[in-house]
Design a protein around this nucleic acid. Structure first.
Lengths: 221, 221
DNA sequence: GTTAATTTTTAGGTTTGTCTAAACTTTTTG
DNA sequence: CAAAAAGTTTAGACAAACCTAAAAATTAAC
């Protein structure tokens, strides 16, 4: 059973999936915020997705994806990440430019197109931001990385995932010379505001705020 | 000045451009036919495109693209043909499958995306159906090929362009073993209905109707 | 050169996805 | 635990892109 969903419906499902990872039940306002829409619009769409059995919805009590809703969401995420990989790897787009383009490409074409693209790219396992790419059956291999904000002191680390693709966020990273693969070491954590003093590329020191460090994920080297 | 147009507007412009090649002025019914829409819908859109200065429109007297309308149409055709080339060359789709997918992909992304794709593909000059791909500045290099229906008798020919991408048409070609590059020789033209007796691949004989032969374009070998 | 046929346009309606403003629940707070 | 605040839903509107049915303009036919 492989129905077709509108761009809008697909975006709602994808966004709900991401929000669910942080918080089991998703609220109307949280979704409105993420989608840059008004709460009333969210309620409208919830009724439609609910009628299509893509999510469980009880008025005033939030909502969560059904099995089918999850399946569709993961499919969109697969498309998104494969296109990001293609744009970065083959077309040589900067890793901070690919997100916006992939937002459009993810809604195009058939399953066959995506499976052929996957094969052409050599079945990559991570996108340019370090996020895992679901396979053709919808399986996601989670990464064992932790946010920089919780990393131990004086331990050599490598950035392996960036979990915020907003223009504003990527702008900070570019200015500070941070990207996937950059080597780091946390020298001090300030208890007052959670900010970190970090040594970048075994060279200069800089300070990263807590909200920033939460979206930078690292692995020990 | 690089405004954004809706998928629908882009499809109208592209289709008008194609119809204009055959007939200088395009009529409401002809466009309705090509777009699988009702004449009333065409009139609605004509008013909109006219207001945006994309075409010249005088009620009851047909319409033709403005300079800007032509520019946009050629841009969509460039996108379409580049994606077709990508799908066929890189993802190994059959040359008869690429049209439908390219109809979706052509509306996606920025000029930068298409220019990078063009570069990645090595600036191809023809799509998998033998149609020329406009360059980044909108220049189209026309092909010197002629329809099989007008080809001379007993002269070795090669199919170099297919000018109908409908499912029904491509189905005939597949069944008769005809594709870009196939070698042909016209043995006889029947005056009664314009049908052709053709020798295919210097092997078997077959008969092709005139409407069919009009969409097969050949070059002498 | 009227009448008939064809083509095109207008008028009014539908669906999808959005919005604002008002009403209604739930949660928080003194 | 009642009143205020916060969050959510309903009601009604709007734009885009279609549609059908009826009216108007053009073209063809006798």
């Amino acid at each position: 059973m492989h129905l077709n969903y509108s761009h809008s419906e697909e975006n709602y499902l994808k966004t709900i999936f991401h929000l669910q990872l942080e918080n089991q039940v998703v609220t109307t306002n949280a979704l409105a915020e993420k989608l840059n829409a008004r709460p009333a619009s969210i309620t409208d769409m919830m009724k439609k997705l609910s009628a299509k059995k893509l999510l469980n919805y009880k008025p005033y009590y939030g909502f969560s994806l059904s099995a089918e809703g999850k399946r569709v969401a993961i499919d969109i995420i697969r498309r998104h990440r494969l296109w990001e990989f293609f744009l970065s790897e083959k077309l040589k787009f900067g890793w901070d430019e690919v997100h916006v383009l992939a937002e459009e490409l993810e809604h195009v074409g058939s399953k066959k197109l995506i499976d052929k693209l996957d094969e052409y790219l050599g079945f990559p396992r991570f996108d340019p931001h370090g996020d895992p790419i679901p396979d053709s059956r919808g399986k996601i291999n989670p990464r064992h990385v932790s946010p920089l904000s919780e990393a131990p002191l004086n331990c050599p680390l490598k950035i392996s995932r960036i979990s915020n693709q907003s223009h504003e966020f990527l702008d900070v990273l570019r200015h500070k010379g941070l990207a996937i693969g950059t080597q780091l070491e946390v020298k001090k954590r300030f208890d007052f505001d959670g900010a970190l003093q970090v040594k970048i590329k075994a060279a200069h020191l800089d300070t990263l705020s807590e909200p920033l460090a939460k979206h930078i994920h690292v692995k020990k080297v």
